[in-house]
Design a binder for these strands. Sequence first.
DNA 1: AAAGATTGAATAATCAATCTTT
DNA 2: AAAGATTGATTATTCAATCTTT
Lengths: 172, 172
Amino acid sequence: MPAADVPLDHPHLTTVGLLVEAHAGLSQSLERQLRASSDLSIHWFEVLLRLARSPGERLRMSDLAAQTTLSTSGLTRAVDRLEAVGLVRREACPEDRRGSYAALTEEGRDRVDRAVPPHLEQIGSVLDQAFSPAEVDELTSLLRRLRDAANPRAARASDPDPQPLGGLDQPA
Amino acid sequence: MPAADVPLDHPHLTTVGLLVEAHAGLSQSLERQLRASSDLSIHWFEVLLRLARSPGERLRMSDLAAQTTLSTSGLTRAVDRLEAVGLVRREACPEDRRGSYAALTEEGRDRVDRAVPPHLEQIGSVLDQAFSPAEVDELTSLLRRLRDAANPRAARASDPDPQPLGGLDQPA
DNA sequence: AAAGATTGAATAATCAATCTTT
DNA sequence: AAAGATTGATTATTCAATCTTT
């Protein structure tokens, strides 16, 4: 017999369920858009964007892995494929010869540059449909705190400047 | 040369990035917990939970697919595996013989019942660490609207009772 | 011996094609 | 012919093991 006291409809299960559904829905819709406009998967776009934002448009393999959803081996394969189509190039790492950089090629940079505007348009259309600008900010702030609580590692890996809130002085 | 006017750091990219990171971080942490306490993957748990919440503890394959992140073929394989370990059973569908039900077995029901409490504890510990109760409600409401905007199909598939906010009368 | 990165083997997810029933 | 579900082939992801450098 089903245990009557197991809270199958606890609100926290709903919260997590909605996070999963929101993520899945948005990912699918963005993937479709990126595929159609720029022939990129959402994962490829994510990798290229992270590189484009990094100094020298390159990043150590392990740092790049920490900034994406991929394991280090998963990232190795992804970069293999990106390299095979000429969007990314591996570069040797002079100061630590164990290491390796993934660097954007000119073609890779070009592809992100062209992919970003229609991508932003799509994101904007979803967010504008659902929220006021203030609510987008509110959502962003809540998601950042959730991310920090659930995944302290990624919190450090990305977000070079967490929150320009002022007031917190010396970096310790 | 890098196009100077491409907004690589547009706030909307950050919002989406945080959604992805929050989802990945929470999923990983919940997966670890479920694996350790109940030997279930987060996907299996999700499937079993959806079934446990459904009338008769069963659901048509396609409805179940619509409520999860899986495609119909992905769900077929997942149910194959769940059936192989005895947590789910397929049942014929009398009123439409093309169809098929996935139904919880007694053992399956037992597994969810035992998995839910420690799972809720883990979710609670993350949410309580990051938010006040009012903020959890705020986040939930924002996520629901985002989900509805990004994925109208899932919005209908799950959530039998969207929001007990009152005021909106006839279902039309 | 530990860190950075890669590889082999195993697992899981998808698309397109197929089969049955409506 | 369309809907529900499954299967074959392909692709992607992970874990554990390996190799090189520190």
